[in-house]
Amino acid sequence: MRGAPPAFAPVEDRSVAFRWDLDKTYLRTEFESLRKMVRIPFEGGADKVHLPGVPQLIRALRRRAEAQDNRPYVFFLSASPRQIGSAVRDKLALDEIEYDGITFKDQLGHLVRGRWSSLREQVGYKLDELLSARLGGPAASCEYLFGDDWESDPLIYSLYADVLSGGIDLETLKRILVAVDVRKASVLRILDRAEVLFGTAPDAVEQIYINLERRTPPSRFRAYGPRVVPTFNTLQAAASLYQSRRLELDDVIDVARAQLGVEGQGGHRLRNSIDDLTRRGHLRLEIRDRVVRRFAREELAPLAKGEAALRTRLRAALATFRRRKQKAPLGRADYETLLAQWENH
């Protein structure tokens, strides 16, 4: 039964929220095998490993937001059990990450109550938490969401963004939640919250970054629209955020250095990453040029021979991508296609 509509926090002007998933987005958590999973509860903060460049990126996002006279918020939302919270908090402290909230899933509670399906269920849990967090405030005027391709982050984040923007009607939302096996009680709770938040912040979610940890083909995210940016590494996310003026070029270089340092990568990998993002139509050519030239100046990656000719060729190739992108629906995801994909799957 649906109760009285909950109250909601007013939108806070000049504020920006960065919402992060933890495993596979911030932390290099390995739960591909039982052996690796068993180890996780026994890890301390110092044992946990972050993805290269992510701490640098979060610190820079907060710093730049403040410099731009915006109130920054950093939230973490994880489907990991609360019991690992202490180790994660230690890790965040070690990485000097200031954050405003961190949420874990009550896996033990589900276990005790015998709700086996809830242990693995992600969409209902995360969407409910996102909407609750927004209702309870702070409700930032602008949000950036960071997830990965392991679970359903692109879908969850897109639904959240479209509830805020009014880009999805509640009936479609219900159909999707039912199709992805969200528990009935969760569906009702989500619909309650969605009804209150529906269309309250049309442009709130600016970008959704999906870390392609599993190397999922980028074309599979096309139905989510241009708001979702699949990225192969933190540098790609940083370059895109530089384009959105959430970062300065210095910050992109910091992330690049972190990526080089941890992975022992060659400079060519940095340039290839930037070119890949450009070819996929997520980075404008002039931004690409600025980043690549700065790489050369910092001696991170030399300019390619015949850089001018290369630029002309890249421009020609990009023209087609831009035309294709213009045809895509702006903002909202194509849920009919996604539903069809889900049903076929």
């Binding site: 074309s219 192969f232 340039r271 290839n272 070119d275 060729r313 890249l314 991508f321």
Partner: peptide, 23 residues
């Protein structure tokens, strides 16, 4: 380049090791 990127997009790849030269 356009054809190549469309094909790359459709599969799994590591962009750090691949560059594309249009001709």
């Amino acid at each position: 380049a356009e054809q190549i990127q469309a094909l790359l997009d459709a599969g799994e790849y590591n962009p750090e090791l691949i560059s594309v030269r249009h001709c």
